[in-house]
């Protein structure tokens, strides 16, 4: 991997050319540091997912309906509104 184009697009980030250049230097320097992990001996016997969380099982609750009364507060956070609707730009250019 030589440049950040693909990563920037996967991450939905638009940056200036100048910023991209600096970010690329920093990011690839850090990734190079990560290569030390190649010397860690692991085996296919290690089950990473079983050790990802706490030993206890995840406790899931029953789904149930609860009243939600704070509609106004949520709407106050909308960056753009049209009437009672959240406004978004079109998916494709008009």
């Amino acid at each position: 991997m030589k440049n950040l184009n693909n990563l920037l697009s996967l991450a939905s980030l638009k940056v200036s050319e100048e910023e991209e250049e600096k970010l690329a230097q920093e990011v690839f320097k850090i990734i190079k540091y990560f290569d030390e992990l190649k010397e860690v001996e692991d085996s296919s016997l290690i089950n990473p997912s079983s050790l990802n969380f706490h030993p206890q099982e995840l406790i899931l609750r029953e789904d149930r309906e609860l009243p939600f009364t704070d509609r106004e507060e949520i709407m106050r956070n909308f960056p753009e509104l049209e009437g009672e609707y959240l406004k978004s730009p079109p998916i494709e250019k008009e």
Binding site: L37, K38, V40, D42, I46, N47, P48, N52
Partner: peptide
């Protein structure tokens, strides 16, 4: 994945 395994260690 490598990092997940090393975390287990």
């Amino acid at each position: 994945l490598k990092a997940l395994k090393a975390r287990a260690l």
